[in-house]
Amino acid sequence: MADQKRFKKVYSQGTLDVTEIWIDTETGVNYVFRKDGYAGGMTPLLGKEGKPVISPIENN
Rank of each mutant, 00 (worst) to 15 (best):
G40V: 06
N60W: 13
Q4D: 14
Q13D: 13
L16W: 04
E49P: 03
A39Y: 14
D17F: 05
I23P: 00
Q4G: 08
T19F: 07
S55G: 11
I57R: 03
P56R: 15
K35F: 01
N59T: 04
T27D: 11
I57G: 02
L45P: 04
L46E: 10
G28F: 01
P44H: 08
T27R: 07
V53D: 01
T27C: 14
T15V: 11
T15W: 07
N30Y: 14
D3S: 15
E58V: 11
T25R: 02
S12Q: 11
T25Q: 05
E26K: 10
W22H: 02
F7L: 07
G14P: 00
I54R: 03
S12Y: 07
K51N: 12
P52E: 03
R6T: 06
T27F: 10
Y11L: 08
Y11R: 09
G28M: 03
D3L: 14
G47W: 02
K51L: 13
K48W: 02
K9R: 13
G14L: 04
V18T: 10
P44V: 10
L46I: 10
P44I: 09
K35H: 03
S12E: 08
S55P: 01
T25S: 10
M1S: 10
K5P: 06
K35L: 02
E26L: 10
L46M: 15
P56I: 14
R34N: 10
K5V: 12
V10L: 14
P56L: 15
D36K: 11
V32C: 02
W22S: 00
K5S: 12
K9A: 06
P44M: 08
R34Q: 12
G40K: 04
K8A: 13
A2P: 02
V53F: 01
K51D: 10
I23W: 00
F33M: 11
G28Q: 03
I57E: 06
N60Y: 13
T43H: 09
G14R: 05
G50W: 04
V18W: 03
N60K: 13
Q4P: 06
P44K: 09
M1G: 11
N30S: 15
L16D: 06
M42S: 07
D24P: 00
G41Y: 12
V10I: 15
E26W: 08
D3R: 10
I21G: 00
N59L: 04
R34G: 05
P56H: 15
F33T: 03
K51C: 07
L46P: 02
K5A: 12
P52K: 01
Q13S: 13
S12P: 00
E58W: 07
N59D: 07
T19N: 12
K51H: 13
N59E: 05
Q13F: 09
D17K: 06
S12C: 06
L16M: 05
E58T: 10
V32S: 00
R34P: 00
K48Y: 02
F7S: 02
